[in-house]
Write a protein that binds this DNA or RNA. Sequence first.
DNA 1: CCTCAACAGATGAAGGTTCAACTACCTTCC
DNA 2: GGAAGGTAGTTGAACCTTCATCTGTTGAGG
Lengths: 160, 160
Amino acid sequence: MRWLTPDELSAWLVYVATTSLLDGALDRQLQRDSGMPMAYYLILAMLSDVPGRTLRMSDLAAVTQSSQSRLSHAVSKLERNGWVRRSPCPDDRRSTLAQLTDAGFAALEEAAPGHVRAVRKHVFDRLSREQVGQLREIFATVLDGLTAPDACAAVLAPAE
Amino acid sequence: MRWLTPDELSAWLVYVATTSLLDGALDRQLQRDSGMPMAYYLILAMLSDVPGRTLRMSDLAAVTQSSQSRLSHAVSKLERNGWVRRSPCPDDRRSTLAQLTDAGFAALEEAAPGHVRAVRKHVFDRLSREQVGQLREIFATVLDGLTAPDACAAVLAPAE
DNA sequence: CCTCAACAGATGAAGGTTCAACTACCTTCC
DNA sequence: GGAAGGTAGTTGAACCTTCATCTGTTGAGG
């Protein structure tokens, strides 16, 4: 059994503490100033960035890294807010299209400056250009492993 | 208004996607193999690493980066599992001590190898020694800003 | 002393996420 | 064309987290 080296452990603990606090801070800022958690902000942001501001539920789940169930609940809530509209997909009657409404776009435009300011203040204003590159490189590598087809299966297997 | 540069934005999106997937993967592994989410694993781990395996609730909240409320709920659940025991603090009658039980220690020892294996597989087996150092450096910098006394107030202030 | 503010913790309701079904539709292939 | 299996999405229950509120306890100043 290979445990973590002291260097790895220390890096890991710092990572865990930081992501936990950073997530909390960003969520609190958005919830407070715009009445939505960050996950919902990301849904609106991804929709806003696509032609027609419309995406199939599955594709929206993929770009926001959320499960279908989670997205379905989230879109239900956003729909109640009037920020997203669902409509049946003409090509495939299994699919549903989610479209950002004008009110949703307005809410996003309202929320964006505060959110970006918080991200900048907590993260990018504190890092050098080099570190930003390192950050992207490191996480792109980890992301690669997580999205590889059998990444989950391999770790979840009992007899690995 | 300063938005993110393309480099920053790309780094940020990769970061968000990765942490979301990594968190999910680690949580699923622990839940599946040991019946606890990662937050609860961390509570047990922090308790196990301290003389007497005992900590005041406030201190435990601090080392696990969780709110008092969250910790209180979590410890209630862990207590129902028989993994933690609460007892009044003799020095200060406001405080409560949380102590890891033998059953709790056993559960932690059972869960640790799988969890460490998952962390290693997803993160440290994919990074160079240099990158581990960069990771720690970057997050230590961000953490520093988050734990500074007025970090939250400054961002939450409407007229910042 | 005694009041008042601060601190430690618990609690219940509201909201978000996960998991396990379940429905409906499409595709493959015999 | 009909059965079988996969895909898209929803739903409800269980669980976790957050927020506001509440009870006690301690400490500082009058």
